[in-house]
């Protein structure tokens, strides 16, 4: 028999900062972050393998660290800023990565897509201008069974270009006094 009787199943409340919002979740100490997020209604984070192999569950910790949320307890995530795919962009305001995956047919069944997007986001935070090989190496902890990865690499490169251009536009706009650097437009009248 397993040592189930020694397992602490007492529920406790964890406070998680997810996509800029504070969540209070009742969890067991052994509750995995992936399930805590999903139980909170953030169903974009998927579970695919139970062995930390597939990466369908990747979320970002503190903006730029990809973490397999099936390999982390919810209680360990307290104090971190967590970003899930829901925090990347919604249907009306797609992030350049989401737009690029759409443009380049970088998804089919969609199950791996949230994890793939979050890992790609982390990579571009660290390396805004990767080679194809660097993209492949960074994404190697995320399995995809449908696409064969070729279009995912193209999508990440498209997003990298767009994000570099946006960063440059923002930097240039920031040189002019009175311009809102966050939108790159004068007076904040973004359209």
């Amino acid at each position: 028999m397993t040592a189930t009787d020694t397992t602490d199943t007492t529920l406790r409340t964890v406070t998680l900062n997810v996509n800029g919002q504070t969540l209070h979740q009742q969890v067991e100490p052994r509750t995995l972050l992936a399930y805590a997020l999903r139980d909170a209604g953030l169903k974009g984070t998927h579970v695919g393998c139970d062995t930390s192999s597939c990466g369908c569950c990747v979320v970002l910790l503190d903006g730029d660290t990809p973490a397999k949320s099936c390999t982390m307890f919810a209680v360990q995530a307290e104090g971190h800023q967590i970003t899930t795919v829901e925090g990347l962009g919604g249907p009306g305001n797609l992030h350049p990565l989401q737009q690029a995956f759409w443009d380049q047919h970088g998804l089919q069944c969609g199950y791996c897509t949230p994890g793939m997007l979050m890992t790609a986001k982390a990579m571009l935070e660290h390396n805004p201008d990767p080679t194809d090989q660097e993209v492949r190496e960074f994404l190697s902890g995320n399995l995809c069974r449908c696409t064969g990865y070729n279009n995912i690499v193209k999508a990440v490169q498209q997003a990298a270009r767009v994000m570099r251009d946006e960063a440059q536009a923002q930097a240039l706009a920031g040189m002019v006094p009175g311009t809102d650097p966050s939108t790159g437009t004068a007076g904040g009248g973004a359209q």
């Binding site: 999903r38 169903k43 795919v85 989401q98 759409w102 199950y111």
Partner: peptide
């Protein structure tokens, strides 16, 4: 024609609806 997929925005934003959801 290589029309972009109509189903993708939901998958890209975590709005897919799988059985475990």
């Amino acid at each position: 024609k290589g029309m972009k997929r109509k189903e993708d925005p939901r998958f890209l934003t975590g709005n897919g609806n799988y059985v475990d959801d």
